[in-house]
Design a protein around this nucleic acid. Structure first.
Lengths: 225, 225
DNA sequence: TTTAAAATATGATAATTGTCATGTTATGTG
DNA sequence: CACATAACATGACAATTATCATATTTTAAA
């Protein structure tokens, strides 16, 4: 079994401030899980008795609204933790997690997270700082959602995916999302997303190859109004 | 000077898990500040070297967007803490705080919050749980903003204000917000807000008396589509 | 490889929301 | 009280976005 202290995810997550002993416990208890593209990792309303840590791959957190539509709340990549909140507040999760491509997760039981949280000040302060950052991002997202046009939100999502997950050898966004995925992130109809992406193509801001998207002009995308 | 251990705000905030000694320090260091309706408590971009705790009154947290419009991110009432995040992440605040009516705040210097956070496990876990709750709310807000109509968002805001801050002796919402305030919360034009509130009046969902709003039919407001 | 299903694309049209103009009503200040 | 200012209200119109219909293309499975 892979040891946690070598895991690349550790470099990126709050777990970097766990002690060697704590990390050893995590290492011993954790189980590694693989999910295929499209697999549901957990469903809204489930009780999570542990935390997932993304070792490799990308997942989305979604929330079902009253009309039966999914809203994507967050994308998660390497080093991100899933389910910390539910574990800390001891509530069922209010989000579903779905794999966007093949993904490898470590599942760490609740106790191995909560115990260090209650004993290791550095770790708990780190998690607190992560939460503070998440909250700030969340506020920014809210303002964007409230005040920007669909076109702007799509442009920003493309830039976000580019910035966060990078590009493949040919310059295409390495995370491949369907038009419906993009629609679910910006909170609009799939048709609107398709139309706007087509427009971006005509404008030369992006190019596509099947489902792959390449950003051709970062600056123009930033200036979309 | 009023002692913190008698403060009603303490019953509601994470400070309830501070030790007597910690609370004594807070009590000795804190300063009480009064703001009048409309006063700016602090501005986006300021460095906050402490935390505000709402003793009485209501404030809003707003964020300026690129077009110069304010988005209201959160309303704060008795027992709510303002500025914890900036203090914890050691960053300048990304929000402004404005008094919505006459308000009394306690200002607690940074150290009196951060030191207990680094020493008192119970307190820091409590703050963590508060953050977890805030994050969940924030996600819910995002989904609402993304997927509900302006009309629904206004109806929900009325219900929220009713639920959170209650009504006066005559049944009017005890927090009095301008149409512009409501617009800034739901992220729409002031005129749209005025129109929709007029419609709600015609429909008999609410009644008004000057700026005062009374909810006449909770159930109908909940069912708005 | 064939074929069904899913994803993408686009037109037509409706619904929602924003913007600008303009008038009325409250509110507060000298 | 008078007056200036801000808040509220409403019409007319424009812009954005959603919805429905219908092709076309891509993908995946038999």
């Amino acid at each position: 079994m892979t040891r946690c202290d070598h895991c690349i995810a550790r470099q990126l997550s709050a777990m970097k401030s766990m002690t060697k002993e704590e990390l050893k416990l995590v290492s011993d208890c954790k189980t590694t899980r693989f999910f295929k593209k499209g697999d549901v990792i957990f469903e809204e309303g489930e009780a999570l008795n542990g935390v997932f840590c993304v070792r490799d791959g990308v997942a989305k957190l979604t929330k079902l609204n009253a009309n039966g539509k999914d809203q994507t709340v967050k994308l998660l990549g390497r080093g991100d933790m899933i389910g910390q909140r539910s574990v800390i507040s001891n509530e069922r999760t209010n989000l579903s997690a779905v794999a966007l491509n093949d993904i490898e997760l470590c599942y760490v039981p609740r106790d191995q997270i909560v115990n260090p949280l209650q004993k290791n000040q550095e770790f708990s302060f780190d998690v607190l700082q992560n939460f503070a950052k998440d909250l700030k991002n969340s506020e920014d997202d809210l303002v964007n959602m409230a005040q920007k046009s669909v076109k702007q939100r799509i442009a920003e999502t493309l830039l976000y995916v580019h910035r966060t997950f990078g590009v493949d050898a040919n310059g295409y966004l390495s995370v491949v999302l369907s038009r419906e995925d993009y629609a679910s992130i910006v909170g609009t109809a799939t048709e609107s997303t398709i139309r706007i992406l087509s427009q971006f193509k005509k404008d030369g801001f992006i190019s596509t190859e099947g489902k792959l998207i390449k950003i051709e002009n970062l600056e123009k995308l930033r200036q979309v109004e």
